[in-house]
Design a protein around this nucleic acid. Structure first.
Length: 1043
RNA sequence: GGGCGGUUAGCUCAGCUGGCUAGAGCGCCACGUUGACAUCGUGGAGGUCGUUGGUUCAAGUCCAAUACCGCCCACCA
């Protein structure tokens, strides 16, 4: 069947096109990259999405930006590889599966056991990995799917084992007792990064601890206060400041300083506060000094309920200005107390089991949960008359980001990575710009974070993840240690490079205490490099026990850029594609992920993992809040794809990606019943269902949870901010459609310069500039600049002018062939420039175009590639850039605008042909004359005369442009009132400008100091404006005669 | 408490190294549909560029202070 351009629908049917085109790209293998010594590689590794969830708007943004980059590079001839994959996301994934297990089967992970649970999670992973990768494909991502990896797959496992062994061998990994953030719900330690602070309503309890054998005149009690009374069961001391007086002076001085700097409005309250503190404190001071002296004497306190004798110690942690000035010390359950205990050598008593219940150390409170214990402790203390006071108070409480439950600090065995040298190496890489972060302001956060060089706790009490490859044996005596070491060395197949041994001495250094507690002298840890090595079983047989914990997810993520390419095997891929070129990610994981990739890459590969890092903005909702599942305020990118198309989503995303700031995106619901669209508010988003304000019917959204809600028709969640992109796609489609309707009989030949008309030369000049700017913008991650450049060029120049001007030329048999060739060529270039951003529509048009003009070109004519994906990136001849032509054109454009304006303000019917003349200098005449016909076609205005001698018609409307005057003959048409109103306004504007310019030029300093060209410019423009004013004044006085 | 962003039209945002009359999209007003596009066309209204000071011949742009909004980090028993 012959191709019939008239049959092309006036809307781009993206629904049908997207999957058809994408499947073809897959089939052709366009996404696949093989190592090739002939071509320069360009590599991006994807930030692997979690297998937990579905694609959200952040993913859509992140992956759109990567795809734009990789598609451009591919077209530029690079051997472009976009490495895809997913992350096992330890805690997140296990938590989801456990939750389902509990809800659907009423079972815990312990009912299932390790192996069975892990198997379940793998099932989950298979399902969700498929889903999220499918969604990336809907977005158009050109990843090399043949290489898809998973952070828990075999190769990643090997990479993890090798890395762990290497660090272990370098003594950069150790086990130690640490206070960790314990999530009692998930029963795991979570890193500091996974802890968020939340304000909750709580109480502040004041207790009294009796002093043992107080001397006469000494206080009988010390008062302490806490928001967590149950922790008192683990108290091992009470601290008071070593120099209360000095500390108080310092505190009041600071407060006074603050008052001096404060707003007048706040001074009063601050002063009151100061006075109150001063009087309170001066009353307390004697007692504090007394307590300090008692502490120095080694006096002790009786811990109520536990009946334990605990010391009174001095430590500057106890702030005299706060509360009673005394603070209870619970080393095993509070980070600050832990530090105090280390300084003051206090014992550490862990009172909690891993499930959040109390252990034997809590005496009679054993088996209560922390929460129950709290109530009980308070009640018991009250009964003993030791509860002084209870305040209501807002408390900042750390919560687990995963389970949203309060964190219980907890003393536990954990594995750590020593960050010292590793962190330094990662800092150096950014400081000396081997890795460049864009925008550069994010370098500071990266460097500051690493500079703390805090050891990285890497063990997680989970089952889903890379199990730590360490086998341990506690050894009660030195002899046992030696035997254990000999056992390891004597293992069948022992190899120094495969096996590494560490001895961890007991943390309790006091010999008698150690034996009393039944602790071993040391623990021997053995790390084995190869997974499944026969050595593993031998170790177990020798009594060694494998470490139960798995590694922090970020451990495997840190290896992503090289593990995905095959490391530790020496693959051609690794050779070719490492280091990668660009990493595109969001700012919240600069430290968690980016920094760790850099140090891991340096450690394992001896080279940075990527040269450039681009941090993209965050998308917020209309209220400036982050979009999140729990708030239910997100936009579903799939809804956008569904309703507006993937190209619109992508174009919109790129259009929002400016360097300076995060993006606000008001959210709208679209009612599935009546298609009414209305804003998402804080109120209507709360519920799992939404009621349409227009038709009053309820519908569900992507956030609905309950069965009942889900059974309702599903409404779309969109944002009007994508409409600009949607409209643009439509414009592009229709311009292309118009082109194709006029390309019948197209004959491919080269184009020669002498065939070019003014508008041809103009569009070529603009096209050249635009292509340069687009390349440059994208190279610098200025995505919004690139989309804006293309938007404006395509719409305001190509469609509004060039296409309009081609209309007449298509109609003329003589000009038609050349016009067709120009149209085909220009459109071809524009499509290629747009392809990385809007891949689907550009490919669809590209394929349709091939039916009419399979061969296109300018200097040379070539057969177009089968797909735009593999076409060359436009590199246009810079010689086409022509300033003069562009100026000539803008003169034409302003003339046209002036004519249209007259038409509009005189209310002339669109079809009503008018006549006009132009008075200007002869050099301008030559520029305008060739454009004469276009005034007729584009403004229904015929140019009667153009010269420096034009006499205005008797009755006319005038526009005074710089250096030229336009007169429209309005005999019998004029609306005098409208005309004089307009002219008066114009006159006022010109007078204002003249005044400004005159003032500037009268300023000697300006004339003397400003650059000469700036001064000359000002003078010229003043002269011009005066000319314009003259014209306007004349026109006004002419109008007077008509009144 | 420390750090970083933002504050420009009713809304969402551009505005690079300071220099002609501060821009865009949406929204608003007026007019317009026998063939590319009403997801459109033409024209218009709408801004003391958060505030105060400073540098400069010249400040939305540079500097300082300040207010408000947001984010990150560290945090009070």
């Amino acid at each position: 069947m012959p191709f019939n351009p008239d049959q092309i629908p006036s809307r781009f049917d993206f629904q049908a096109a997207q999957s058809r085109l994408y499947q073809n790209w897959l089939k052709q293998g366009y996404f696949h990259a093989e190592p090739d010594p002939q071509r320069e590689p360009f590599t991006i590794v994807i930030p692997p999405p979690n297998v937990t969830g579905a694609l959200h708007l952040g993913h859509a943004l992140n992956n759109t930006l990567q795809d734009i980059m990789i598609r451009m590079k591919r077209m530029q001839g690079f051997n472009a590889l976009w490495m895809p994959g997913t992350d096992h996301a330890g805690i997140a994934t296990q938590a989801v599966v456990e939750k389902r297990l509990r809800e659907e089967e009423g079972k815990t992970r312990h009912d299932l056991g390790r192996e069975a649970l892990v198997e379940r999670i793998w099932d989950w992973k298979q399902q969700y990995e498929k889903r999220i990768l499918g969604q990336l494909q809907q977005l158009g991502c050109s990843c090399d799917w043949d290489r898809t990896r998973f952070t828990l797959d075999e190769n990643c496992a090997t990479a993890v084992r090798f890395t762990f062994h290497d660090l272990f061998d370098k003594q950069l990994i150790y086990r130690g007792k640490r206070l960790v953030n314990w999530d009692t719900f998930l029963q795991t330690a979570v890193s500091d990064d996974e802890v968020v602070s939340r304000t909750v309503q709580g109480h502040f309890w004041h207790f009294r601890y009796p002093v043992i054998d107080p001397l006469p005149g000494e206080p009988e009690y010390v008062q302490v206060a806490t928001t967590r009374p149950e922790t008192m069961l683990g108290d091992t001391g009470v601290a008071v400041h070593p120099d209360p007086e000095g500390a108080l002076l310092k505190f009041t001085a600071e407060l006074e300083d603050k008052i001096a700097k404060a707003n007048p409005a706040d001074v009063e309250t601050l002063k009151t506060e100061l006075d109150a503190t001063k009087s309170r404190v001066s009353a307390m001071l004697p007692k504090l000094l007394q307590l300090k002296a008692m502490a120095d004497d080694g006096r002790t306190i009786r811990l109520p309920l536990m009946d334990r004798e605990i010391p009174l110690v001095t430590d500057s942690w106890a702030k005299p200005e706060l509360g009673s000035g005394c603070v209870k010390i619970t080393p095993a359950h509070d980070p600050n107390d832990y530090e105090v205990a280390k300084r003051c050598e206090l014992p550490m008593i862990n009172i909690m089991n891993t499930d959040g219940t109390l252990n034997a150390e809590a005496g009679t409170y054993q088996n209560l949960t922390m929460k129950q214990a709290r109530k009980q402790v308070v009640a018991d203390l009250e009964q003993l008359g030791l509860l002084d006071e209870t305040e209501d108070r807002q408390i900042e409480l750390p919560h687990s980001d995963r389970s949203k439950t309060p964190i219980e600090p907890f003393l536990a065995d954990q594995w750590f990575i020593r960050m010292d040298s590793l962190a330094q190496s990662a800092m150096d890489a950014v400081s000396d710009h081997r890795v460049r972060i864009t925008p550069s302001r994010y370098e500071k956060g990266y460097l500051d974070w690493l500079a703390e060089k805090r050891d990285w706790p890497v063990s997680r009490q989970l089952w889903w993840g890379h199990q730590i490859p360490v086998w341990s044996l506690p050894c009660p005596t030195e002899q046992d240690c030696e035997t254990a070491r000999q056992t390891v060395l004597a293992l069948d197949g022992y190899d120094e490079s495969e096996v590494s041994i560490q001895t961890e001495p007991c943390h309790e250094t006091d010999e008698s205490k150690r034996t009393q507690l039944g602790l071993p002298l040391a623990t021997i840890h053995v790390c084995i490099k190869q997974e499944g090595s026969p050595l593993e079983d031998q170790l177990v047989a020798a009594g060694f026990q494998r470490e139960e914990d798995v590694l922090d997810t970020w451990f495997s993520s840190a290896l992503w850029p090289h593990s995905t390419l095959g490391w530790p095997r020496p693959t051609p891929e690794l050779n070719t594609f490492y280091p990668t070129n660009v990493l595109i990610t969001s700012r919240d994981i600069i430290t968690l992920w980016v920094a760790r990739m850099v140090l891991a890459g340096l450690n394992n590969m001896g080279e940075v993992p990527f040269h450039r890092v681009f941090i993209h903005p965050k998308i917020l909702d209309g209220y400036g809040e982050t979009m999140s599942k729990s708030k239910g305020n997100g936009i579903d990118p799939l809804d956008v794809i569904d309703k507006l198309g993937a190209d619109a989503l992508r174009f919109g995303m790129a259009d929002l990606t400016t360097e300076t700031q995060d993006v606000r995106m008001p959210v709208q619901f679209e009612c599935p019943h009546c298609e009414h669209s209305f804003d998402q508010t804080k109120k209507n988003r709360e519920l799992g269902r939404v009621d349409c304000p227009k038709c009053k019917q309820p519908f569900s959204t992507q956030w609905s949870k309950t069965e009942e809600d889900l059974s309702l028709p599903r409404g779309l969640v969109l944002s009007e901010r994508f409409e600009r992109a949607r409209n643009f796609i439509n414009k592009l489609w229709n311009a292309s459609r118009f082109a194709m309707m006029n390309l019948e009989g197209y004959q491919a030949t080269t184009i020669t310069p002498e065939q070019l008309t003014v508008e041809d030369r103009w569009i070529l000049s603009r096209l050249t500039t635009v292509s340069q700017n687009v390349s440059q913008s994208l190279e610098q991650f200025r995505y919004a600049d690139a989309t804006r450049e293309l938007y404006e060029f395509a719409w305001n120049e190509f469609c509004s002018f060039y296409v309009e001007m081609l209309k007449d030329r298509f109609a003329d048999e003589q000009q038609r062939p050349h016009a067709q060739r120009m149209m085909a060529f220009t459109l071809d270039c524009l499509l290629r420039l747009l392809h990385p951003i809007t891949p689907f529509i550009t490919e669809e048009i590209w394929l349709l175009l091939a039916n009419l003009c399979p061969e296109r070109g300018f200097d040379t004519v070539q057969k177009a590639t089968d797909s735009i994906m593999v076409a060359d990136w436009p590199e246009l001849n810079p010689a086409w850039q022509d300033n003069e032509i562009e100026q000539q054109f803008s003169l034409f454009q302003s003339t046209l605008a002036a004519l249209r304006e007259i038409r509009s303000r005189q209310n002339l019917a669109p079809k009503k042909q008018i006549r006009f003349s132009i008075r200007c200098h002869s050099e301008l005449t030559d520029l305008i004359k060739p454009m004469g016909l276009f005034f007729s076609s584009m403004a229904a205005a015929d140019l009667e005369e153009i010269s420096d001698q034009v006499t205005p018609p008797k009755i006319n409307a005038t526009v005074a442009l710089p250096n030229m005057e336009i007169f429209v003959d309005l005999a019998g048409l004029i609306d005098v009132a409208a005309e004089s109103k307009r002219l008066e306004k114009e006159q006022a504007r010109l007078l204002g400008m003249i005044a400004g310019k005159e003032k500037q030029l009268a300023n000697e300093k300006f004339v003397n100091n400003a650059k000469p060209e700036v001064v000359a410019q000002a003078q010229a423009s003043l002269a011009q404006i005066r000319e314009q004013l003259k014209t306007v004044a004349e026109a006004l006085s002419d109008l007077e005669t008509l009144k």
